[in-house]
Design a protein around this nucleic acid. Structure first.
Length: 314
DNA sequence: AACTCTACCAACCGCTGTCTG
DNA sequence: TCAGACAGCGGTTGGTAGAGT
């Protein structure tokens, strides 16, 4: 303090924060708010840069921080979200109340990465490592003959091409999504790539009405959750059995080239207009966190099972 | 006991986006 | 339109504790 008299540039402290510094910063922010961070150190009597103060407050001193070890549910959620968002730690953190991006990033780099590798999963791509190819996920779907078949989920997707995207179908009337998705490990990993190819836009279902999940509609179209959008029997079926799929076919050409921004959706700022049960990702994550052992893939998976069960009714 | 290795975590650095004059 | 200030983000570094040798 006195050591750096007027006329000399005050030497800024670096490194670990002392309890005294923490106390000063906490007192100041609690009493006055942080305002402009660059002025905080001076007002709080700290020899730190504003940036350092901001970081200390956000990552350590904030009263709403959870701290402590991550639960299994949180870990699952982080892995699922990372599969969708990649290294967008702040967006991942936004779905985990009380956790900071720095904390999640550290947890990812020190623990999850290693775990995934041990399980033969590439932490970057979330796909099986080249030297360890587990079998594809299997789902059981009813066939036209009424006899259920067990197949991998990419094959199952062939049954409902219109639901997923608008592509030219093959001579068999089925869309070849195998080449695009390979052996999908979870539906959650499939959905974003489907999204970006057609401009579908998801919103979140409300709790209670149907199982929470992603709800799809064409961007720009009016959305009416679960109410049935046309007389088309397939769409009615989809509405009933697969609550996140809803289509407004006349809009599709208009919007098909617009790339969906999954990240924008996840931060809750991009809900579908006109829907009657719109939630940000908060709604989903809150719900997911209440479900022991249930991750995003489970949520998708549950709805997928409902869809599969419905084939027998077609 | 001394040293090395490893894991973890806090903090820093540099870049980018946004806001404002 | 532009420049500067600021906030936010993600990658990286460095310190520390504990385990192993």
């Amino acid at each position: 303090m006195g050591r750096y008299s007027d006329g000399f540039k005050q030497k800024l402290r670096k490194g670990l924060w002392s309890p005294e510094e923490d106390e000063k910063l906490t007192k100041h922010v609690t009493n006055h708010g942080h305002g402009c961070w660059s002025s905080v150190p001076k007002q709080a009597g700290l020899q730190r840069c504003g940036k350092s103060c901001r970081l200390r407050w956000i990552n350590y001193l904030r009263p709403d921080l959870k701290r402590g070890t991550f639960s299994e549910t949180e870990e699952k959620l982080i892995i699922e979200l990372h599969g969708v968002l990649g290294n967008r730690w702040s967006q991942i953190a936004a779905q985990l109340p009380g956790r900071t991006d720095n904390e999640i990033k550290n947890f990812w780099n020190s623990c999850i990465k290693k775990k995934l590798r041990q399980q033969g999963i590439d932490p970057k791509t979330h796909e099986p490592l080249l030297d360890a190819q587990p079998p594809p996920d299997l789902v059981t779907i009813p066939t036209a003959s009424g006899i259920s078949e067990t197949t991998d989920c990419s094959f199952a997707l062939n049954y409902v091409p219109d639901m997923w995207f608008n592509k030219t179908t093959s001579s068999t009337g089925l869309v070849d999504v195998n080449s695009e998705f390979g052996s999908c490990s979870t539906l959650a990993s499939v959905l974003p790539s489907v999204q970006s190819s057609v401009g579908l836009k998801p919103s979140i279902f409300s709790k209670g009405e149907v199982s929470p999940g992603i709800h799809y509609s064409w961007e720009g179209g009016s959305s009416s959750t679960g109410s049935g959008t046309s007389g088309n029997s397939k769409n009615s079926f989809i509405d009933g059995m697969f609550p996140w799929a809803e289509f407004i076919p006349e809009k599709e050409q208009e919007h098909s080239e617009e790339a969906f921004k999954w990240s924008e959706f996840l931060d809750g700022s991009q809900n579908v207009g006109g829907g009657d049960a719109e939630f940000g990702m908060d709604g989903l994550s809150d719900w997911a966190l209440e479900q022991p052992q249930m991750a995003v893939s489970d949520i998708f998976g549950k709805d997928f099972q409902r869809l599969s069960a419905g084939f027998g009714q077609l």
